[in-house]
Design a protein around this nucleic acid. Sequence first.
DNA 1: ATGAATAGTTTGTCCTGGACATAGTTGTAG
DNA 2: CTACAACTATGTCCAGGACAAACTATTCAT
Lengths: 313, 313
Amino acid sequence: MTLAQDNMCARPAMTISTVERDTGLGKDTLRVWERRYGFPQPERDHNGERVYPAEQVERLRLMKRLIDQGYRPGKLCAASDEELARLCNASAPARDGEPGPSEDLIRQLIRLVKANDVPALRHALNQSMMRLGLQSFVMDVVARLNHAVGEAWMNGEFAVFEEHLYTEQMKALLRQAIGSLPQSGGRPRILLTTVPDEQHVLGLLMAEALLVLEGATCISLGTQTPLFDIQMAAVAHQADIVAVSFSAAFPARQVGPLANQLRELLPTHIELWVGGAGAHRAPASPSGTLLLPNLPAALDGLSDWRTRHATCT
Amino acid sequence: MTLAQDNMCARPAMTISTVERDTGLGKDTLRVWERRYGFPQPERDHNGERVYPAEQVERLRLMKRLIDQGYRPGKLCAASDEELARLCNASAPARDGEPGPSEDLIRQLIRLVKANDVPALRHALNQSMMRLGLQSFVMDVVARLNHAVGEAWMNGEFAVFEEHLYTEQMKALLRQAIGSLPQSGGRPRILLTTVPDEQHVLGLLMAEALLVLEGATCISLGTQTPLFDIQMAAVAHQADIVAVSFSAAFPARQVGPLANQLRELLPTHIELWVGGAGAHRAPASPSGTLLLPNLPAALDGLSDWRTRHATCT
DNA sequence: ATGAATAGTTTGTCCTGGACATAGTTGTAG
DNA sequence: CTACAACTATGTCCAGGACAAACTATTCAT
């Protein structure tokens, strides 16, 4: 404020609240890291309040991502910038066993996002969906594309707004595809949503597409439904299954407790499916809880449910 | 953890974090209210941490809504439960000058949501859209329906999950409608999004529908784009206009600063449109910022832009 | 009396520094 | 080599003080 020439670069204020929103790290956490590890080390304004430089925020964002992958803050704070960058890229080439026919397509689509060419992107996605059919499209292309976008974002190759753009286009496409499928009204009836603080809906849409395609009835509540309301909705809609999705970005530590809490709320005759990239690190699942780490597992789960309920009904 | 049977009632542990998420009131605010006004007055667990009873959380949610409408916390904390309920209902009949032909329709739709009858709701919405055309449907039906749902929720007639269900259906419908419109590629190019912490997207979709219908090119980034990224996206996509939407639930106090901050970030040749129910209490708008308190205003703004740019180009 | 300027009050957010429960890590004994 | 215990790391909570920005009431001049 007092100095006008400090940083005319795009980020004017960067108060602790702003950083909390931008990084997902709580105010308390930010302060306690500063106290314990000496990072971040914000400047202070005339009133003694923290003012975070942009590069520290950038580093915080990186660290958050790595922490969600299992690294520990103490180590990361001690690490140098190069080490951090290395860790980020390290996670990428871990799984590319199959160069696959779609690798080229993925790269091509990524290029279109980066070029901000919306019409071409939309056209390419549509074409690919038509050619492969919805099921293959979702399982092969969309799943990998999500991965690729996530990684590009982590490596700093994608800006936030480019990821937003991609997500928005994909959401529109999947919604459109789902909307044009016939509403069978068949069993099972599946209630789809995410828990509070989980705002990623793409995984849910992908699952919905596959499940509707198989003749299940899907009722989507969108994101961030309080657990209590998930319970009420499940009962009100006579759901057979409640499916919740956790993205890779969701704090792994909270997945287990939340799933258990929800499991206890639901009537025992309603199954709970926990899916998404964040479902990896879920706990020993109590009876009536099914872990679906990937999309094929969801289809297996569906046919499994059907055989079970065809015989015993 | 130590005791398994502590509370089998639906809301297991209303910690201060849970309440923050559920009500949107910050931890600091909750604590300082308790200190100053004596409300809320949570119990404490064995560790001295706050445990909020469900009815206090309910009241907090109500108060938040009223505060966002301009009431002040001091008064509300002093008020009795009946007074609060009265205030909530009071806001409702303030504006119903026109019983209109769509009043019945609205009521009918609300009933369908409450009955959890998804197929019938979808059918009724579709039918209404077909009959009225997209423009009238959005301006007359959707706008009022949103209002009605918001009020029903405020009065406790709607559960959270019912509001989610409605929102999800409406989003799907509008996306579908937008997707089926021709992509003209015409001017102006409008970038649509919301700021961080504003996750309501319906208003944006309504605007997008109307604008695309008028031949504008809309690029939607979805919700919660950091201001800095809005700027980058606007430049990358060569937008003529950036449109951001604030819902009625958005803290009125922050609208002005955010709009100004964004205005400063954007190049002067890009207009900034601030719309949505929360745009009411916006500040003296600096040059290049347009306030759009309602949907017709957006259409006016569009034709206005066109006349301006038809002559001077 | 009306409108503007001033003084007072309300309210949200920040700060410091202490505490503690839980999760992860290391060490030791069977 | 596994299981249990001690230890460390980490996030979140708490109290109570401070302050700036927003809102309200009062005073003064036209």
